[in-house]
Amino acid sequence: MAAVFVLFLPILANAGLNSGCYACHGEKKFPGGYVDETLYSRSVHGQFSCSTCHVNITAFPHGTPRRVNCMLCHLTGTGGAPRTPALQYELSVHGTAVREGLAAAPHCQTCHGSHDILPPGDPHSRIYRKNIPRLCSRCHKAQYERYKKSIHARALFEMGMERAAVCYDCHEEHRVPNVTSPKWMLWLIGKCGSCHKRELATYRQTYHGQVTRLGYTTVAKCPDCHGAHGILPPSDPGSTLSQKNRLHTCRKCHPGASGGFTTYYAHPDDRDRRRYPQLYYTWLAMTILIVAVFAFFVVHTFLWAYRTLRERLKRKGE
């Protein structure tokens, strides 16, 4: 109990003190920075005093505040602040870039905002699902331009499919691993498959899917054929897998690819008689052959072993 009290001490001690801050910062034209009191009080941190985050502001008048360090609470879990995102961020390309001094690299505030942080489920939140592409586009403009035209964007914004992929589904929110990391490339296959279940299952039946499952990345993975940000259904002429572009896509890995490549099923299902009759009957014939051969010879072998052992026992008995 005492510990909890101590944790919340700054908040309690400064309760009511915010009104003092708003005396200046509540003025829209205040050159030191305007804070909308209503917005702030509605934000997830709205119950905290200003100095909870602005830790170097202890008296009035005050000098230039330091950049707020969210990690003070979020890396330590102070007051129940979620730690996992902070830890993940520190290891991400974003967190690494900040530590390495890249000026454009995003801090927490870059994505989450500061005085107006709303929970991710709130449509007004910067990190609301549908707002994510715009948010990331502030730095990743080229990727956004391609994403905007993709089937994922169309599904999300035009067809009302709430689960359609946005940036952080594939790039893992706070984790944001390096896109050249083999671990991430292999993880991503499963991620695509978490929505495209059938496609993943059938991909695993091919050489591509087997080699990647064994942990190697140098064969075709989802984005190698389908593209990444600008992904389109193969029926779309602009798709990397449209009849026009298909062979070109195969040739990225198979330089000599010939016409037959364009009609190869990269997602075959040999149990689907209606869609893939050739594969179904091949599978059926092979299965019958295997079962027949083994059924005959396993019976043959067991009976043979039985007879030989019996004869041996008989001979021993004599």
């Binding site: 198979h254 000599g256 690819a257 010939s258 016409g259 037959g260 490549f261 364009t262 009609t263 190869y264 099923y265 075959p268 040999d270 893939y276 050739q278 594969l279």
Partner: peptide, 14 residues
């Protein structure tokens, strides 16, 4: 596959 793909359809590889 490049050689056989010249005269075999894709499903032949499946």
């Amino acid at each position: 596959p490049a050689f056989f793909g010249r005269f075999l359809p894709g499903w032949a590889f499946n």
